[in-house]
Write a protein that binds this DNA or RNA. Structure first.
Lengths: 282, 282
DNA sequence: GCTGGAAAGTAGCTTTTCTACACTTTTAGG
DNA sequence: CCTAAAAGTGTAGAAAAGCTACTTTCCAGC
């Protein structure tokens, strides 16, 4: 299901003269077209009713009804968050939704390219390892830390660090039943790659959350590949880091589900342990 | 323009018995409902045609036509990511998109409730402070760390910690031109609240990223409020944490734009500094 | 200028949606 | 416990919207 408006723009010249008149009307004010019935629509475009129907069919719709539904779907969310780069003059009202939109787009991309088989294997690996070491530098540091937080909640012994030296020490004493989870947006961060090498030498399995076709992806036992969305727009930093976090969520969920019998109870226990640090007064 | 499916879920109990039957049908298979005409729809739900119409009106729509258009809009993006709780038997193919969908929904919520005025003020505050201290505990720790990473990139001196004691020491020596950014999902974490108190006593301004109507929101100079989505579903942890991160992105973007003249150049410089840690081979 | 075919329009028909009104069930008050 | 109002639900038929068969118009190539 492609975006109808995008389709319309791209195929506008493949339409006949009168049909193009309808297209013009649609592009001018799509919201309005949704409310207009066939006869008014035809009148406004200066064409006959069947021409409007034919226009819909030319776009691959069943009829006007179907066309309107698809148009509504294309219009959802108000502002299309494709191609909405932040610009110099933007106020908060402009750049806020744009930045959030970029994050949403990144998540959509992850969902569309979601590779269930690989995730299953990754969860398998996570659930069966004795302990976890999480490592990420720079922007990936918080991601590793977040993952630690999640896995500890699920009763998987997990440590995280952003210090390459510390990480090397920890990896050097890891057993083959342990797992190293490496996070790197580019998959080309040298200390991370060196760490992967060290782990391989010691027979420690590696799960990588990184860019496809990167050196890190190649070095990993299992690679969860996420297309980096950086550098597209200087002002929309790190949309792909949100994608990484979402993937961590997915993994944690998978692990939680594997421990199915007492999984919920375990989570509850962790929640209870945290509760006493909260106040209830208003 | 709210999401119709979300609205339907929330107001499901305000409907009459027969109308609820229609609601059930819609929730069970929204895509199908779009294609069904009134009579079949009524038949499937086991109610009369006017009941279906009344159901639509109860939801604030003009009629069935309008209802369908809105439903189509709500469904845009393929899988309906409301009402998609992770269940025990789910495989990766099922829970993956659900978890990601929950994150997307959280971001949509942030975008819909986006308060530009407050963000403008927050950016103003951030841009004009001498230095920044970021604090968050538990799940908010990584968020604070991430924010530090972002603001340092933008040449705002920023530190972050999850250690309350350390934070207290740092706050006690902060000047009134400094800013304390507190992150707390619930807004009820006691150490965070105590830290806020300490800051207030010292005249240090507080920017809070937290739940609306929470004690922390009340204690802050400026509160960026984000509805916590936790506890709704045990297996979808921390969707609201992604919302927090997105808000950090927005703030960082705002600050970057304020430094408009040499903002891009500055960002470039940071990118260059990082580049030498990367390998290009392969 | 004629002809074949594509594009557009006319008019009427079907489907779909909606409304007016009647009946039933529930609720509140005496 | 009965009654009356109110809310909920259904029946039937009117109104609107969408669609199709067929006719007319336009245009390119012979």
């Amino acid at each position: 299901m492609t975006n109808l408006l995008a389709l319309l723009r791209s195929r506008a010249d493949a339409l006949s003269k009168r049909e193009a008149a309808v297209a013009l009307l649609v592009l001018a004010d799509p919201q309005r077209v949704l409310r207009l019935p066939l006869d008014k629509l035809a009148a406004e475009a200066g064409v006959s009713q069947p021409t409007v129907i034919r226009f819909c069919r030319s776009l691959g719709c069943d009829g006007l009804r179907d066309f309107k539904l698809r148009l509504a779907a294309s219009l959802a969310g108000g502002v299309p968050y494709v191609h909405a780069d932040v610009a110099q003059g933007d106020g908060a009202l402009a750049y806020g939704p744009k930045v959030i939109g970029a994050a949403i787009a990144a998540l959509h991309a992850v969902r569309d390219k979601f590779d269930a088989a690989t995730v299953e294997r990754a969860v398998e690996l996570l659930a069966s390892s004795r302990q976890l070491l999480l490592f990420g530098m720079g922007g990936s540091g918080p991601v590793a830390l977040d993952a630690q937080h999640k896995f500890v909640r699920l009763d998987c012994p997990a440590s995280s660090t952003s210090d390459p030296l510390m990480a090397r020490m920890m990896v050097s004493v890891m057993a083959t039943t342990d797992l190293l989870l490496l996070v790197s947006n580019t998959g080309r961060t040298i200390p991370t790659l060196e760490l992967a090498e060290l782990a391989r030498a010691g027979g420690v399995k590696i799960l990588a959350l990184t860019a496809p076709h990167s050196p890190l992806a190649a070095a990993a036992t299992i690679a969860l590949e996420i297309e980096p969305a950086e550098d597209v727009d200087l002002y929309t930093p790190m949309a792909s880091r949100i994608a990484h976090l979402a993937m961590i969520d997915v993994l944690a969920t998978g692990v939680a589900l594997r421990r199915d019998t007492d999984g919920p109870a375990r989570l509850m226990r962790v929640k209870d342990a945290v509760r006493s640090t909260r106040t209830l007064d208003r």
